[in-house]
Amino acid sequence: MIELNVHKTLQSAQGSMELHVELTVEKGQFITLYGESGAGKTSTLRMLSGLMPPDKGSITVNGTVWFDRERKTNLNPRHRNIGYVFQDYALFPNMTVSQNLEFALDRKQDKTVVEDLIATMELQQLRHRKPGTLSGGQKQRVALARALVRQPGVLLLDEPLSALDSAMRQKLQQYILEAHKKYGLTTILISHDIGEIIKLSDKVYEMQNGKIVRQGAPPDMFGLGKTSAKFRFTGEVIRIQKEDVVYVVTIRIGNDAVKVIADQSEVSHLQPGDKVAVASKAFNPVIQKI
């Protein structure tokens, strides 16, 4: 179980921000931090991993104190039992895929775990390649495998899939979910993708200006439980155009853009960039094989 209660004053382009995060994650849970850029999500992961010291507060994981300002405890990142997947993958360019994984081994650790991970992440073909020759999705698989070599109790994922196309994302989400279950991990993910959050996580925390403003189960958080819709999708408003007496709202859902007619009262609180749900109640949607 992770018990985290930390304060930190962060300097950003918009001035200083007070970060105060308090959260408890049960063992084996998969949670997501969600929110705008600069809300303090990455800083939260960095404080949990020991890469950034909090100003005050405490971090306790499975009964071990990792950080406590009062007691002057601050465990070195190397002694915290975590796997961290960085947004830019952070693979070591001088090592091959196998060497990147083997580097993470503890001195007395059995090498079979590396073979196991290479098989799980389907890296057999790539094992002798250097990171510079890999695609984004391949790098991400290596980074995920490497983070799991030490068999950490806690896995931290900082927007691991944001640079990938949707087909690759789907596949990697599967890898993450498999690893989470197989190794009994407690996982904290940072993500902006609502579909991804609903698919992967048990609980989602929304952050704004350094604070957690909302929390709950993903379907409730993103409004899936509220309407008895026959079908519904979440998407992002791209454009709002006035045509004669109605408005045409263009919404991106996955890789498609759809146009929805709306009246003035509906568009008055919408602007491009808003996340919305598109649902239909009265009609049965037609399904066609493509």
Binding site: S49, L51, P77, F86, L91, F92, A104
Partner: peptide, 10 residues
């Protein structure tokens, strides 16, 4: 992140 990754790998 290169050195940070190395620290988190123990």
């Amino acid at each position: 992140t290169l050195s940070e990754a190395s620290y988190t790998l123990g």
